[in-house]
């Protein structure tokens, strides 16, 4: 099975979700709607909705209940993207100008807040209090993860544990929530909910580690943004942490990576990380998370949805862009 097939199976429901996303971005203020639609039209893999819908297949699948989760979580993801681009001063995303680059910082701030409000409005239609309980804690932790990422910029002394905690909050939580909430609103058995939640966590970790690898290895064209962006921002990711384990490279990287680093120093640091085997070690780690994801799914009854979820996890953990 290839990932396009996963989407093909869900084509109608994903089209419905896309339509609902667009509905939520309508506004009586034309400039605000324009900025929000700009972001929507930049596309994206819509991974979170796909996870939600597939998780919903393990219970009483009802697109009208699942749509609230799928749309709500994707809107939260979009709201964070708009603000992240202001934080990172990012000019392009998925090969297109960011909202910040196209409309300015202020507009990006208002657009992000507008989208977040629309997300909460949609999510408030979910009747299960448990879903809100875990999601509200998750969203708060996501914000804390982002704050701690700023705290840890240029910190070469940070531990692997610190990195893993940060990426869980930054990325894995929302994928974890997609799986858990998809199962909850479909009235799945509590064991199924916790298994899918665990699966989402492992898949989300593999996703972010792969993202951090791609920042070193992908081409700018495939990535839709300049490579090496993390290091340029001072964001210390797992390939760098592995490279730092080698004493000789550690000394050189410590000299190169700092708030005053020059573009040449960043290029040299990227080269060192690539030579170090840090990428391979990071890929091994992503693979281990994928294996854990597979193990978690193995406890669920065999079904096309289970196969699709595993294929999706492999795709996000092995993708090249």
């Amino acid at each position: 099975m290839v990932v396009a097939d996963l989407y093909a199976d869900l084509e109608l429901d994903l089209a419905y979700v896309e339509e609902r996303l667009r509905d939520q971005l309508r506004s009586s203020q034309p400039a605000l709607e324009h900025a929000a639609i700009h972001l929507l039209q930049a596309g994206g893999k819509r991974l979170r909705p796909v996870f939600v819908l597939l998780a919903g297949k393990f219970g009483d699948y009802d697109i009208h209940r699942l749509e609230k989760v799928a749309v709500g979580l994707e809107l939260i993801h979009m709201a964070t993207l708009v603000h992240d681009d202001v934080i990172d001063n990012a000019e392009t995303r998925r090969g297109n100008p960011t909202v910040k680059a196209h409309f300015g910082n202020r507009v990006a701030m208002y657009t992000g807040d507008f989208i977040f409000a629309q997300a909460l409005s949609v999510l408030s239609g979910i009747s299960q209090p448990r879903a809100h309980h875990i999601l509200s804690i998750a969203i708060e932790r996501m914000c804390v993860g982002e704050i701690e990422q700023i705290r840890d910029l240029y910190s070469l002394q940070q531990s692997f544990r610190n990195y893993l905690k940060r990426i869980r909050r930054k990325t894995a939580l929302l994928i974890e929530m997609s799986c858990a909430l998809g199962a909850i609103v479909s009235d799945s058995d509590s064991n199924v909910v916790s298994t899918l939640r665990r699966f989402g966590y492992y898949a989300g970790m593999a996703f972010q580690i792969t993202d951090d690898i791609l920042d070193f290895t992908a081409s700018a064209e495939r990535l839709g943004k300049p490579i090496g962006g993390d290091l340029r921002q001072g964001n210390i990711t797992i390939p760098v942490l592995f490279a730092l384990q080698d004493a000789k490279r550690n000394a050189e990287l410590n000299q190169l990576i700092s708030p005053t680093q020059t573009p040449d120093q960043v290029s040299r640091a990227i080269a060192i990380v690539k030579e170090s085997g840090g990428i391979t070690s990071a890929q091994d780690l992503a693979d281990r998370y994928l294996q854990k994801a597979e193990c978690a799914l193995a406890s669920l009854p065999s079904s096309p949805a289970r196969d699709s979820l595993m294929e999706l996890a492999k795709f996000v953990g092995k993708r090249d862009h």
Partner: peptide, 19 residues
């Protein structure tokens, strides 16, 4: 939860006004 919905509408209006 009802207030999440009501406040969300208000937040939308606030951002439209700011814009």
């Amino acid at each position: 939860l009802d207030m999440v919905k009501s406040f969300s509408k208000a937040i939308v209006n606030i951002n439209e006004a700011k814009m």
